[in-house]
Amino acid sequence: MKGGIVRGLQSIGDGALKIVERIGAVVLFLGQILMHSGAILRRFPLVIREMYFAGVQSLIIILVSGLFVGMVLGLQGFETLQSYGSSESVGVLVALSLMRELGPVVSALLFASRAGSAMTAEIGLMKATEQLSAMEMMAVNPLARVVAPRFWAGVLSLPLLAALFGAMGIMGGFFVTVVMLGVDSGAFWSQMQAAVDFHHDVVNGMIKSLVFGVAVSAIATYEGYEAPPTAEGVSGATTRTVVSSSLAILALDLLLTAFMMKGWN
């Protein structure tokens, strides 16, 4: 009985330490990527190539989800605001939710599962098939040649995707509320413009998505680079990428929101 309690506590402690260790390892890995990023400027086409796979190929899912999220926000907001007789404010609701929270967070979650998992699988498979070791043999640093371009492509793509998500969402909200439900179009835009502040809402949203981009790309490349070189290893690493980057996005979102709210008062 006593031994059971002790063992239970030990396993909790072990789990907690492992989590902290992994966070530390990702941060150290991020430092290494940054140290090997100098070569990127000389070979920028590598980043463009990866931006195609991370950014352009995520466009469809981001644009369509943005449209749907905006439409749902419009419908829900209209339902609720109508009972207070202020259905014109639905534009404010859609725009503020998208700019401050949903745009950066949902696009980062989609990006983690669409592009982050692909990054992990690709790097993990390169490691499993010993392509990374082959590069090292040829005195090519795989961190500079394989990892850094993918990392920077992710960091550059996500804010652009988040902006597109927000813009599509607002168009979706506009379509549902103004075109279908008959909210006045002038009131929709003017109330939105009066409520949305460029610095506090738009820029802060972009800062959020930049931070999420760094987190998702660092986790995805780390998991791929450290994946056990087996089929199970790569599949496990892909799953871990999606799970831990989603958790990281939501935790960072809470932190960033708390800091940004503090700045408002």
Binding site: M51, Y52, G55, V56, L59, A95, M99, S157, P159, L160, L161, A163, L164, G166, A167, M168, I170, W189, M192, Q193, A194, V196, D197, F198, D201, V202, M206
Partner: peptide
């Protein structure tokens, strides 16, 4: 095209949605 679309979306958010 992707980068231009992204910047266009950002500018729309800044001018049409925000009050810059």
């Amino acid at each position: 095209i992707f980068v231009l679309l992204g910047f266009a979306a950002f500018l729309m958010l800044a001018f049409k949605v925000g009050n810059l």
